[in-house]
């Protein structure tokens, strides 16, 4: 299995729901709590696994705004794992999920240097590196109803812009979406082979506007015979 996410940029409205759902679930999850620094002070910040950025493509008035959620891509060639000196970072053989063992991490930050996608954040309070777990503590929890055994961010996304599934299975929804919609990876030139894929915005087909009505109704109206329409 190769589990990961597909993010549909065609419909992501940038609402940040997935980011907060992630925060909420993981605060009390396997690698929680996720520290928040200066939470009510001048410059609040904290540990997040999923952040939403907003880009603009093109120039006014031909510009498009792209909302861009990013979390761990669970890369196939995850340098974050190979560079980790302690073995705290690992990639699970059975499903490809990349995790950090909180009991082993020494907080050297090195894996975060190796990650191109900004997916790893150090928790200063625990001194350990934290990252998206692909909600491994939800998706395999058999006491959660089966339809809810999905990452918290996927469950919550109001625009259904997030899909979770197995990329090794060519018939899975994620594989199909990537195939049919031209799903792509970020920073492909770095060779991490990220599992998560992004679906580009769709192009709406043009709507025909020819042969619609007869122009000149204003003139016609002067000599107009009503149409007989019964109620």
């Amino acid at each position: 299995m190769r589990l990961g996410l597909v993010i549909d940029l065609d419909v992501c409205v940038g609402c940040h729901a997935c980011a907060i759902a992630c925060k909420q679930w993981n605060a009390s999850g396997t690698t929680g709590p996720l520290s928040d620094y200066d939470p009510y002070g001048a410059e609040p910040s904290g540990v997040w696994f999923n952040r939403i950025r907003h880009f603009e493509v093109g120039e006014y008035p031909n510009n498009k705004t792209i909302n861009f959620p990013m979390s761990c891509m669970h890369c196939e060639d995850a340098a974050c794992v190979t560079v980790c000196p302690t073995g705290a970072s690992y990639k699970r053989a059975e499903d490809g999920i990349v995790l950090v063992d909180q009991d082993k991490c020494m907080g050297c930050n090195y894996c975060s240097w190796a990650c191109p996608y900004g997916a790893r954040e150090l928790d200063r309070a625990s001194g350990t590196m934290k990252k998206c777990t692909l909600c491994v503590d939800r998706i395999y929890d058999e006491s959660i109803p089966i339809e809810e055994r999905q990452p918290a961010c996927v469950l919550t996304c109001p625009a259904h812009a997030r899909m979770f599934g197995d990329f090794d299975d060519p018939d899975s929804a994620v594989s199909r979406a990537v195939r049919e919609r031209g799903g792509y990876q970020l920073l492909p030139e770095l060779g991490y082979n990220p599992t998560n894929h992004y679906l580009p915005p769709r192009k709406a087909p043009p709507i025909p506007t020819e042969n619609l009505g007869k122009p000149g109704f204003r003139e016609r109206l002067k000599t107009f015979a009503n149409k007989l329409v019964r109620r």
Binding site: C15, H16, A17, A19, I20, A21, K23, Q24, W25, S28, E147, E148, A152, L155, T156, C157, P158, H160
Partner: peptide, 22 residues
């Protein structure tokens, strides 16, 4: 522990926005 959308609810059909999640 966790606040999530109610899948059976006519308004949100299981999803939740950022505020609701917070």
């Amino acid at each position: 522990r966790f606040i999530q959308g109610n899948r059976n609810h006519p308004t949100n059909q299981g999803v939740l926005c950022a505020k609701g999640n917070a």
